[in-house]
């Protein structure tokens, strides 16, 4: 059996510290759990740098490290913490190459999670970075995708926002697109919703619908193959974008792009427009299989 995504990330980080002599910054890295088991048990002498709890300053400290050509990895344990950690990454690191021709590449590991953890720690917040120039946004959910993204970063000189999700850390399987043949409808999924999309496809196909699946790894720049576009163009009813963030961000923006490229109606599903509470009755979770199936059927039937 292959390695899980968790083991893959841990191995990449270990290599980054031991062989590339890089640095990993973050808060409470060496605490119990080692960030969901994705960090090797290494310490400051090895390049694993514990920052203070000053979120905004810490984003700046990592930015300064990147200015010195260190290619630091910055771990943000919950994506909602980006509201305070991102300011200097998006305003300095992302712009430095363009303004002063001084590259400042940071590999930001933003880790998503949800379910009973409230409005800040819960869900993905990759849309936060979306509107700023000079950075790339990716959301790898499989071991090979993660390796590709890390290798791409090491050859590149730009900021990468890597939108991870704890729900994918046990995953060993490479998720493939299903774009062959004429589809009734296409599900275009981002982050953790990719796993629900597969389940929804199975249920919908049992009901007689032909469903395509397109996995989105590269959010910014948005990358989609010609064959995938053709699949949407040839579909009967268009498609839907699934996201683990609020829809008023990346998903609506990508839907607009796809709408222009394919001339098909592209719908979106993501977090509801409300804050997440802690009780399950007031939580705000990404679309699940049942909700996706219901939405797709309603689109097709109307």
């Amino acid at each position: 059996m292959g390695k899980t995504l968790r083991e893959t990330i841990k191995e990449i980080i270990k290599n980054h510290l031991k062989n590339k002599k890089g640095k990993v910054f973050g808060q409470c890295l060496t605490a119990v759990g080692w960030v969901g088991g994705t960090l090797p048990e290494l310490y400051e002498k090895d390049g694993m740098i514990e920052l203070s709890m000053a979120d905004v300053a810490s984003g700046g400290i990592v930015t300064g490290s990147a200015l010195m050509n260190e290619k630091p990895i910055y771990v943000i344990r919950y994506q909602g913490f980006n509201w305070y950690n991102a300011p200097m990454i998006v305003n300095y690191a992302a712009k430095s190459k363009e303004i002063w021709n001084a590259p400042c590449p940071v590999f930001v590991r933003g880790i998503g999670m949800e379910g009973g953890i409230g409005p800040v720690a819960g869900s993905s917040h990759h849309s936060l970075y979306y509107r700023m120039p000079g950075l790339k946004i990716v959301s790898p959910m499989t071991p090979n995708e993660y390796k590709k993204i890390y290798n791409s970063f090491m050859k590149d000189d730009e900021v990468y926002y890597v939108s991870e999700h704890r729900g994918s850390f046990n995953n060993k399987i490479e998720l493939k697109n299903d774009i062959k043949g004429k589809k009734d409808f296409v599900i275009i999924a981002i982050s953790i919703t990719r796993f629900e999309a597969i389940k929804a496809k199975e249920l919908l196909e049992k009901k007689g619908f032909k469903i395509g699946i397109i996995n989105i790894l590269w959010i910014k720049p948005f990358k989609i193959s010609k064959a995938s576009l053709k699949c949407i163009i040839n579909s009967k009813f268009g498609g839907i974008i699934l996201d683990d963030d609020y829809v008023d961000g990346i998903s609506n923006s990508i839907a607009n792009k796809l709408n222009h490229l394919t001339n098909k109606k592209i719908f979106t599903m993501g977090l509801s427009n409300k804050s997440a509470g802690f009780h399950k009755k007031v939580d705000n979770l990404p679309p699940d299989t049942k909700q996706i199936v219901k939405k797709v059927i309603s689109i097709i039937k109307n």
Binding site: K23, I49, V56, A57, S58, G59, G60, I61, V62, T63, G64, S65, A66, L67, M68, E70, P72, P87, M88, N91, Y92
Partner: peptide, 13 residues
């Protein structure tokens, strides 16, 4: 912002 950024550059270099 030059303060945290300068601190990070100093720490690394």
């Amino acid at each position: 912002t030059q303060v945290p950024i300068g601190v990070g550059a100093c720490f690394t270099s």
